[in-house]
Amino acid sequence: MSEARKILILGATSAMARGTAAAFAARGDSLYLAGRDTDELTRLATDLSVRFSVTTHHGVVDIANTASHSAFVKQAATALGGLDGVILAAGYMADQADAATDFAIVERMVAVNYLGAMSVLDQCAALMAAEGQGFIVGISSVAGDRGRQSNYYYGSAKAGLTAYLSGLRNRLSSQGVHVMTVKPGFVDTAMTYGLKGMFLVASPEDIGRAIVRAVEKRRNTVYLPWFWRYIMLIIQHLPEFLFKRLKL
């Protein structure tokens, strides 16, 4: 096994983050789990250390609270004794209909999925660029590839994140830091449980393992599972005059 890396997981209490953390832990990496629910973070951290005999730390961070990010990232890197990788899994998807009637929900989605993500990743990027090594994984969404009437507040925030990650990758590539954009399709999480119209749903554990493999291969943008690349290729290339009439 290669040397244990020091990895920060942001938004660690989601099912997808748990699957990803398990996949890194399975190869022996040390983890720092960050999120808002202290009790749950403690449970998750213990779980990973018992199952995989790895070192785990945890701490509270609110992705929407950008003012706290600088101190937080320093604290996490100190606890880990360095920073080799960051997984941004924090995300917030509210129901489109709820968001359409309450703009505070839209603001929250932008604050978490886009603004907060940029803020916290900027802090991590600065640290890693100074060291000249490491990787950043941003979990965006296929929802950001084209705005659809069923999910466009969330989708537009994720579109912003995708563009940010692309720019960050461009800037950091000369500084030894790799940036990977992940676009999951339907994953079997609390976000999708019971929703109608789900198909080919992937398990969070499979997504986690796929992320670890993609990091090894230094992929730039990965759709997970892979066939979503082609589904989205079709959706992105539908002519607008047709697309605008579809119930998507």
Binding site: T13, R18, D37, D39, E40, R43, A190, Y193
Partner: peptide
């Protein structure tokens, strides 16, 4: 009617 929590709470 099934519910599938992700955490103990």
């Amino acid at each position: 009617i099934t519910w599938r929590p992700e955490r103990a709470s």
